[in-house]
Computed example of a mutant assay.
Amino acid sequence: MMIVTTEQVAGYEITEVKGYVKGSTIQTKHIGRDITAALKGIVGGEIKGYSDMMAEARKLAIHRMVEEAEAKGANAIVGMRLQSATLMSAAAEIIAYGTAVVIEAE
């Protein structure tokens, strides 16, 4: 599955638009990560636990979006975007979305 953030794919022609697709996940904080985050807030630096958690969340959201596109018969997703939102103090949602299409080499 080809995934691009552009509306077109160089060297390919969009022959069919299958429609909007999305995938999402909600992740919650872990007490161990919270303790590390509190310490990093004092001394500064990357909070590796949160970075890893968000990377996994993005991967899962994209995977779910791809599954939805494949179910529609698409072989590519154009205009892909990622968005995050805080749902409550201990949880965040990641959503991946775009347009499922069929592309063919020109």
Score class of each variant (00 low, 15 high):
residue 88 M to W: 11
residue 26 I to K: 06
residue 46 E to W: 06
residue 36 T to M: 13
residue 28 T to W: 15
residue 87 L to Y: 05
residue 64 R to N: 10
residue 5 T to E: 13
residue 67 E to F: 04
residue 88 M to F: 13
residue 70 E to G: 01
residue 100 A to S: 04
residue 70 E to N: 06
residue 62 I to F: 06
residue 86 T to R: 00
residue 78 V to N: 05
residue 31 I to Y: 04
residue 94 I to L: 05
residue 83 Q to I: 04
residue 11 G to P: 07
residue 92 A to G: 10
residue 77 I to V: 09
residue 18 K to C: 07
residue 61 A to C: 04
residue 90 A to T: 15
residue 2 M to Q: 02
residue 51 S to Y: 14
residue 31 I to W: 06
residue 34 D to L: 00
residue 66 V to G: 09
residue 93 E to N: 08
residue 42 I to Q: 15
residue 32 G to Y: 06
residue 59 K to Y: 02
residue 69 A to Q: 07
residue 46 E to Y: 10
residue 62 I to L: 01
residue 58 R to A: 13
residue 25 T to E: 10
residue 4 V to A: 03
residue 102 V to N: 03
residue 64 R to Y: 05
residue 90 A to F: 08
residue 96 A to F: 01
residue 20 Y to E: 14
residue 47 I to L: 07
residue 38 A to Y: 13
residue 79 G to C: 09
residue 11 G to M: 03
residue 68 E to T: 07
residue 76 A to M: 08
residue 75 N to R: 00
residue 17 V to W: 11
residue 91 A to W: 08
residue 92 A to E: 15
residue 4 V to P: 02
residue 31 I to N: 12
residue 79 G to Q: 12
residue 104 E to G: 03
residue 93 E to R: 09
residue 66 V to Y: 03
residue 13 E to G: 02
residue 104 E to I: 02
residue 9 V to Q: 01
residue 44 G to D: 13
residue 23 G to E: 14
residue 45 G to D: 11
residue 4 V to E: 13
residue 89 S to M: 10
residue 43 V to P: 01
residue 29 K to W: 10
residue 65 M to C: 03
residue 74 A to M: 03
residue 92 A to T: 07
residue 96 A to P: 11
residue 48 K to H: 14
residue 91 A to L: 09
residue 95 I to M: 12
residue 9 V to G: 02
residue 78 V to I: 07
residue 41 G to A: 07
residue 14 I to M: 00
residue 54 M to P: 07
